[in-house]
Design a protein around this nucleic acid. Sequence first.
DNA 1: CACTGTGAAATTCTTCACAGCG
DNA 2: CGCTGTGAAGAATTTCACAGTG
Lengths: 227, 227
Amino acid sequence: MSEPRARVIPEATVARLAVYLRVLTGLAEGGRSSVSSGELASAAGVNPAGLRKDLSYLGPCGVRGVGYAVPALRERLARALGVEEARSCVLVGMGNLGSALAGYAGFGSRGFSFVGLLDADPARVGEVVGGTAVRPVDDLEDVVAEHGVTIAVVTTPAVVAQQVCDRLVAAGVRSIVNFAPVALVVPAGVDVRQVDLSVELQVLAFLDQQKGVHLVADRETEQVALP
Amino acid sequence: MSEPRARVIPEATVARLAVYLRVLTGLAEGGRSSVSSGELASAAGVNPAGLRKDLSYLGPCGVRGVGYAVPALRERLARALGVEEARSCVLVGMGNLGSALAGYAGFGSRGFSFVGLLDADPARVGEVVGGTAVRPVDDLEDVVAEHGVTIAVVTTPAVVAQQVCDRLVAAGVRSIVNFAPVALVVPAGVDVRQVDLSVELQVLAFLDQQKGVHLVADRETEQVALP
DNA sequence: CACTGTGAAATTCTTCACAGCG
DNA sequence: CGCTGTGAAGAATTTCACAGTG
């Protein structure tokens, strides 16, 4: 019961660590050996002080007066995020979005490996996407068991997302990213991250509209004549 | 200079309003006429009190003791989000992801209309996705001008995202959703929303890893023998 | 001396409890 | 009586300023 140090990493920080990891991978491929918080922050689109605070949750990992060693920091981040060794995932629903995700080479280099691509449409089965053949969705339980998969990505139509989710959970999956526009119901102990691709567009539409607002009455429900 | 009421809507709320709008659209199609905060909240995956608070930024819009009128609330949300009338957008980069977004019927029903689908690959030009023909990326400035587009979606490879962005901004676009894994640099007055599809997966990997942690030493850098 | 690491302040966001109305 | 609307408490997150170190 004695926790030596409650160095809990805030979730907002975890999300940014993933971005830093991507940037660092790019720098490493470019042969860079060190980088300052300012440069890394601007490449990641965040402010430098925030970046340093984020990294501080991993304990000291830079060199004062110099910056951060690119390969060392990269490894540290990968370990912290749990992707030091490739993690096996399944992806259910090989529509446009599923294919896009499966074909995205970035995942491989970031510690994820799709060991199963599943689809209910027999016409799609056998198709090879990103080096892996699509299998029938009936193989779900087998694939999960074979590879000890704990992470799944759901890109099915909304109407079947919940039943796919139920099967995944029953098969032993404990972490799910859901792109279908429905809120999934899962038992305690299972994590679901809901991603809605259109939300960002709507936020943008809102901000865009705000820009055009310079002189507008308080009322939205009624327009009244001006004096 | 006299603001009548600083009823500013927090950004986190705006993002959720977009989700409520989607749920309400589903309810409306199902013929529902009213809904309570509890039901709406569970369908949206949030807590009821938070939902009520979110809606309160739009001013009172429910009936006490009953709930919310579905069509009225839907209209109110659409207006608040700036999608009461369909907004014209361009999408640049018709790879897998671009095609997925362009083909997603949800956008049409949620107030967005892609008036231009652009790609640099001549092989893709002419292809019809979601009812719109793909045009060469050279038409970018023309399409933006023709339709007075202010919102753009970038789904190009990372290496060309910045130059595409520059052209969009020069053509008059003020709001951009960027799916390419680079931080775009834009002048003041232009909004960029960065979306990284792999971040959610990485956050999940982190949480998944945490679950397995029950007895672990403080040190990450060294493994020591146990007594 | 430049740049990291970090407490402390400021801000934003979430949750709670209950007043208020149909 | 049931469910909305909301101030106020609480938690999380961001920002700041500066001490500390190679």
